[in-house]
Simulated scan of single mutants.
Amino acid sequence: MIKLKISLIPVTKYSVGVSAPKEKRTVFYSGLYRKNKFIPPSTIKGLLRSAAVQVEGDRSCEFKISKKLLEMGESNSVNEGESGGIPSNCGDLQNVLEGNMEVHGKVKSMVDEILRTLTIPCRVCRVFGNSRMRGKARIVFPNLRDSIVGPYVLPIGQSMPRRTFSIRDVKDLQFSYELAQNKEQRNPDGILRVEATDATIEFFVICEDEECKELVKEAVKLIDQGLIRLGRYKSRGFGILKANIEEIRD
């Protein structure tokens, strides 16, 4: 096993959570205890995977599928008037090959073309997994046993100093941003209140082999360049990160 330590240092604040439309706000995930705001491991894994897809480009199933759907037009209209699904990763493509997933019309032509030019599972699916296989990368947060993958708990607030928060830290929260919104979006005063933080995130990635390590390193490099952002409201400047990675040798 290869252990990589990754630090995500915000350049701009980030918001990871859910909308509460009736309260006109976006809040961090909190689970059963409202004060325990946290970032799910799946969010961090999704960030790394998104970066890895961009690193791989046409060698990635998700990149190829997205590119083909864009060439075909709006994805939600591709199957208009037809039954069947739209594959999203190598697991779905494998299901199509084995007859476990129906695709028709334009989608079937798209899948046939992708399967002629892509070796499945692609490197992204081998490292991060898909609907049919477990990946070779595992996210582990500080202060947790290696056998447990849990949420990253953090305090949120505009005046919070930038530093690393561990899984045990829980603080009071406050809304730190108010975003102007279209008043027609069932929000008469045109304000959406957003919880955001600039807390550094530290975690470990446990890799099974060198292929996993190299792809994670390349993904982190892309994040560090500001090309992949974290959380919501990225188009408004949220979630820009600097990223550090080091291999931990026990």
Score class of each variant (00 low, 15 high):
3 K>D: 01
4 L>R: 02
14 Y>Q: 00
248 I>H: 08
25 R>V: 08
27 V>W: 00
92 D>H: 15
155 P>G: 11
129 G>A: 12
230 L>W: 14
175 F>K: 00
150 G>W: 10
6 I>W: 11
1 M>G: 14
204 F>Y: 15
147 S>C: 03
212 C>A: 06
64 K>N: 10
88 S>V: 12
88 S>Y: 10
235 S>H: 05
56 E>Q: 08
149 V>R: 07
214 E>W: 00
181 Q>M: 12
48 L>G: 11
169 D>E: 15
193 R>G: 13
184 E>D: 14
8 L>N: 06
219 A>Q: 06
58 D>L: 09
17 G>R: 02
170 V>R: 01
120 I>L: 09
129 G>W: 05
84 G>A: 06
112 D>Q: 10
245 I>E: 06
175 F>S: 00
152 Y>L: 14
155 P>Y: 15
250 D>K: 15
17 G>I: 05
4 L>F: 05
231 G>E: 04
139 I>E: 08
228 I>R: 13
105 G>K: 07
53 V>Q: 01
138 R>A: 15
125 C>V: 12
27 V>D: 06
5 K>Y: 15
96 V>T: 09
220 V>F: 05
68 K>R: 13
7 S>L: 15
5 K>C: 05
49 R>M: 01
27 V>N: 04
156 I>Q: 13
121 P>D: 14
101 M>H: 05
150 G>C: 02
238 F>L: 14
110 M>P: 03
137 A>Y: 14
245 I>R: 03
165 F>I: 15
6 I>A: 04
228 I>W: 05
231 G>W: 01
184 E>Q: 14
24 K>A: 05
86 I>Y: 01
41 P>M: 03
44 I>R: 01
148 I>F: 14
34 R>I: 08
68 K>L: 10
186 R>G: 07
168 R>E: 12
179 L>Y: 02
30 S>C: 04
205 V>G: 11
105 G>R: 04
199 A>R: 10
236 R>C: 02
103 V>A: 02
106 K>H: 08
29 Y>Q: 08
170 V>S: 01
50 S>F: 00
151 P>G: 12
191 I>Y: 00
18 V>M: 10
16 V>G: 03
39 I>G: 04
71 E>K: 01
190 G>T: 06
246 E>L: 04
48 L>D: 09
205 V>P: 10
140 V>D: 01
27 V>P: 01
51 A>G: 09
45 K>T: 07
244 N>Y: 13
63 F>T: 02
176 S>E: 07
219 A>W: 02
